[in-house]
Simulated scan of single mutants.
Amino acid sequence: MHQTDIGPLPADHPPVRKPKIGVLVANLGTPDGTDYWSMRRYLNEFLSDKRVIDYPAWKWQPILQGIVLTKRPFASGAAYKTIWNEELDESPLMTITRQQTDALRAALTARFGDRVEVDFCMRYGNPSTPSKVAELQAKGCDRILFFPLYPQYAGATTATANDKFFDALKTLKWQPASRTVPPYFDRTDYIDALAQSVERAYGAMEQTPDILVCSYHGVPKRYLLEGDPYHCQCQKTTRLLKERLGWADDWITTTFQSKFGPEEWLQPYTVEEVARLAERGKKRIAVIAPAFSADCIETLEEINEEIRESFEHAGGESFTYIPCLNDDAAHIEALTNVIVENLGGWV
């Protein structure tokens, strides 16, 4: 007989594990390699997501399959090669998300012992959300806290990650109780971590930049008009960061990057704004990416290469990219605080 909290079980009953709580952190995703087919699989999954591109399938899929996925995997693969972690044969986003997870696991184990299991998944690519939900359940997790690592909420990031999590739950005979973590863009500890990263970067410079550009990943402007709160939350993050640093309004600005397709997106566009700043005499700038919890292709390649080039081509003289918070101790502490608060009543 096996003794559990539900009483004695027959000898032929499937094993029942000691109940645990799972914490599953999620990020956007990464291709498995930089070759054409790895990039094509990844881009196909990403760009077929209706939360990301919401055009009707009859209109979008022929363009995606016939034009975009014929050419873009080559260009994207070349961009990934410039930042690829050759030692581990993976993207920096994979490396950093694993480091964040290890740090969170250590912090939560120190607080709760073996009652909490911590792992990570990706919305697109591997490790997939369904595979990690299954692993947590196999370890005895009857409750799972799902944590998309996006400070600001957007339908194309937070919501689609949650969708994938809920889809995974649909396949289970015995669903764990579940919670999702709300956005944390205005938390004092998150803003403090951002501010500390800026203060460290500025303290290491011989000359202070003329302005700090807060570059957020863009979305179509239509999403804002349809009720997505992302734009407002980005603006508030910048304002809170400015107030925490004690800066004047013209020492910091908000921009949006990564425009894709013919629609108007949230503006100003980072790649254009940094050129305008240079032309207006702002010859020394720093750029930070508060919407990204970990450095990735959009920060290491797009900001630190393409956007830097736009600034310098327009006459800019000094361009400093301030890395994402990654596994910085203050960031891990803030994320741990978010998790602990959202585990309230479970532990």
Rank of each mutant, 00 (worst) to 15 (best):
G155I: 12
Q137F: 03
F166D: 10
G246M: 01
R40N: 07
G125C: 03
Q61D: 07
G203V: 15
R222C: 11
L335H: 00
P220E: 07
R115P: 13
S293V: 05
S91I: 08
I297T: 04
K236V: 04
E309Y: 02
T253V: 14
G344C: 13
A201Q: 02
L194G: 03
T188S: 14
L43W: 05
C141R: 03
T320P: 00
Q207W: 08
V133F: 14
E333N: 13
C141V: 07
A195H: 06
G344A: 15
H331V: 09
Y124I: 13
N44A: 14
E90V: 12
E306C: 04
Q100V: 11
K59R: 14
S293D: 06
H217M: 12
P31Y: 02
V271D: 14
V287R: 00
F147T: 08
R41H: 14
E317Q: 13
S258V: 04
T254W: 01
G345A: 09
E302K: 03
G203K: 10
H231P: 05
L43G: 04
L240R: 05
R187G: 01
A75T: 13
R115Y: 00
P183L: 00
G315W: 03
L28N: 05
V116D: 07
P15L: 14
E206L: 14
E87R: 04
L64T: 02
T255C: 05
E135V: 12
C296K: 02
R40L: 08
N126T: 14
S91Q: 02
L194R: 07
D32R: 12
P8Q: 09
R123M: 10
N162P: 06
C121M: 09
S310G: 02
S38R: 08
V23M: 06
E279Q: 11
H13G: 01
I6K: 09
T237M: 11
P148M: 09
